[in-house]
């Protein structure tokens, strides 16, 4: 089992939508995929038909002292999503410590996960981009970033890490400044900048409104094709680690 963690350089870069699209695309490439939402905003579930009022999730289960694996939903054979769940304001204060409890809670269940899935994807909140143990333990780290000035400023402050890869989201090739920023990042980040971008595409927004990943909502869309290419890149990188 290999792991990929997705994290935005800041909030609002489309990390969850992008991960949902890539998870579904990896499944289409015959990977057995588990997607785990580590963000208290609990949005990943919505991309796969979940309800915004559904409280079920691994964090909710841990807080309630129930088995967390029961919160997973099978979307298709070999494609599962494990939501974060809904916590109240007081419970959310514990949220940064919960992933560690998840890893330590049930060693036998974790071993079963490793046997059952070929790839596990983690959706990590942007606040954890530099200090999360999930980032450090993952086989592949993908930081999503828009080609905009705010992301430029934040990205320039990140400590260098050769294992971190950067994916440009919501890329509009018509925008001069976005083309310019991409050129600079190609020079500065070299092979750590993914060659493929996620283009700005209304299909991504419509897909979430339809509660489906973009590859299922509109398979012929540009964003769905981007996700397929990035999934193939991820699969290739993970196989090179074996």
């Amino acid at each position: 089992m290999k792991s990929i963690v997705f994290c935005g350089v800041r909030g609002g870069t489309g990390t969850t939508s992008t991960m949902a699209a890539i998870g579904q695309a990896l499944h289409a490439l015959d990977e057995k995929v588990l997607m785990i939402d580590l963000a208290p905003s609990n949005l990943l579930n919505l991309h796969f038909g979940g309800s915004p009022t559904e409280t079920k999730g691994w964090a909710r289960a841990l807080v309630d002292g129930r088995p967390w694996h029961e919160a997973a939903t099978e979307l298709q054979s070999g494609l599962h999503v494990l939501p974060f769940g809904l916590l109240n304001q007081t419970e959310r204060l514990r949220a940064p410590q919960l992933p560690r409890l998840l890893w330590q809670s049930d060693a036998a269940r974790m071993a079963a996960l490793r046997a059952q899935y070929s790839v596990v994807l983690f959706d990590l909140p942007s606040t954890e981009v530099t200090n999360s143990s999930v980032m450090l333990r993952s086989d592949l780290q993908i930081v999503t970033t828009e080609a905009d000035p705010a992301s430029c400023a934040l990205l320039a402050k990140l400590p260098p890490d050769k294992r971190r890869h950067y994916l440009i989201t919501r890329y509009d090739p018509v925008s001069r400044v976005q083309r310019d920023i991409r050129l600079l990042w190609q020079s500065r980040l070299g092979p750590n900048l993914l060659p493929q971008v996620m283009h700005r595409d209304a299909s991504m927004v419509e897909a979430l409104c339809s509660k489906a990943p973009v590859g299922r909502y509109r398979p012929e869309s540009l964003a769905a094709q981007d996700a397929q290419h990035i999934a193939a890149w991820c699969q290739s990188r993970l196989r090179s680690l074996e």
């Binding site: 920023i181 050129l183 600079l184």
Partner: peptide, 17 residues
């Protein structure tokens, strides 16, 4: 030359990179 043109166009990018 292209990279330099970008940096000449955008002061913030010149400071950051």
């Amino acid at each position: 030359a292209e990279r330099q043109a970008v940096l000449d166009s955008w002061p913030l990018l010149r400071e950051l990179y």
